[in-house]
Simulated assay, not measured.
Amino acid sequence: MFWMASVAHAHPHMWIDAKASLGFDAQGRLAAIHQTWRFDEMSSVYSLQGLAKDKQGQYRPKDLQSMADDWVAALGEPQSHYFTRVAVGGKSLAFGKPRKASVKWDKAAGRLALSFELPLTQPVQAKVADIDIYDPTFFVAYAFEDKDAVTLDGAPAACTSQYRPPRELDWKTLQRLAAIPAEQEHLPEELFAITQSLTHRIEVRCS
């Protein structure tokens, strides 16, 4: 299942505190989506198992960079495709090769954070653009809770963004998801029909 082994026993298996910065070019066009995903403590510790430390007890930068490169490469697979969709007029836009991938370890918090940037193959100048970030299999649960979780970088003054969280799941659906074992990669059809709609949407409007 996608790019990091699971350590939990239910859906979701992993929790991510996310941030997204929408980058604009000199012509005022939406050009890239820079994201930072901060993993929960259990997933972070599990991912670091077997990774050597230096004499100062720190993880080596080259090893963390290798981890970042591997994760971003796996995220590019068709099933996940970076868990990100940018659409204008209902049409999905294509991404170029990811860049600026890095992994940082916060020892005090006990959490890893992956950062990467998705450039659009063709920057777009549009009055309306929608960015969806989500895992339709609900293997990963995202949260955009920080006040600066969504920002615009280099946007024209006439552009604004609004974050819309997914709807909350009812208790019965949550119980059914929690009963699914970690080794089961695919959700039952009726549950998948629900979870694939749990998008974290960022609406960009330029007047």
Rank of each mutant, 00 (worst) to 15 (best):
9 H>Y: 10
168 E>L: 12
13 H>I: 10
63 D>Y: 09
160 T>Y: 03
125 Q>V: 00
152 L>E: 07
151 T>M: 07
11 H>R: 15
131 I>Y: 01
39 F>E: 08
41 E>Q: 14
50 G>Y: 13
167 R>E: 13
193 A>D: 14
189 E>V: 15
191 L>I: 15
192 F>D: 08
61 P>F: 06
122 Q>C: 00
74 A>Y: 04
171 W>V: 13
146 D>Y: 11
142 Y>T: 02
188 P>A: 10
130 D>N: 06
145 E>K: 07
20 A>Q: 05
50 G>E: 13
3 W>F: 15
19 K>G: 14
203 E>K: 14
92 S>C: 00
167 R>P: 02
111 R>P: 04
202 I>Y: 10
183 E>W: 11
99 R>H: 03
33 I>T: 05
194 I>T: 11
182 A>M: 09
112 L>D: 05
198 L>C: 10
28 G>R: 01
105 W>Q: 01
92 S>A: 03
162 Q>P: 01
200 H>D: 15
91 K>Y: 01
196 Q>D: 14
178 A>R: 06
100 K>N: 10
206 C>S: 05
106 D>E: 10
64 L>Y: 05
91 K>V: 06
101 A>W: 00
79 Q>T: 12
147 K>D: 13
186 H>E: 15
79 Q>V: 06
98 P>H: 08
146 D>F: 04
195 T>Y: 10
148 D>A: 07
58 Q>S: 09
151 T>R: 08
176 R>K: 08
99 R>V: 11
91 K>I: 04
93 L>N: 02
173 T>G: 04
6 S>P: 10
2 F>E: 12
52 A>F: 11
197 S>T: 14
22 L>P: 08
184 Q>C: 06
46 Y>G: 15
203 E>R: 15
11 H>S: 09
38 R>E: 12
187 L>P: 09
108 A>E: 12
194 I>M: 13
33 I>R: 05
48 L>A: 14
66 S>N: 11
11 H>A: 13
187 L>N: 14
183 E>A: 13
33 I>P: 06
70 D>I: 07
131 I>K: 01
145 E>R: 08
85 R>T: 10
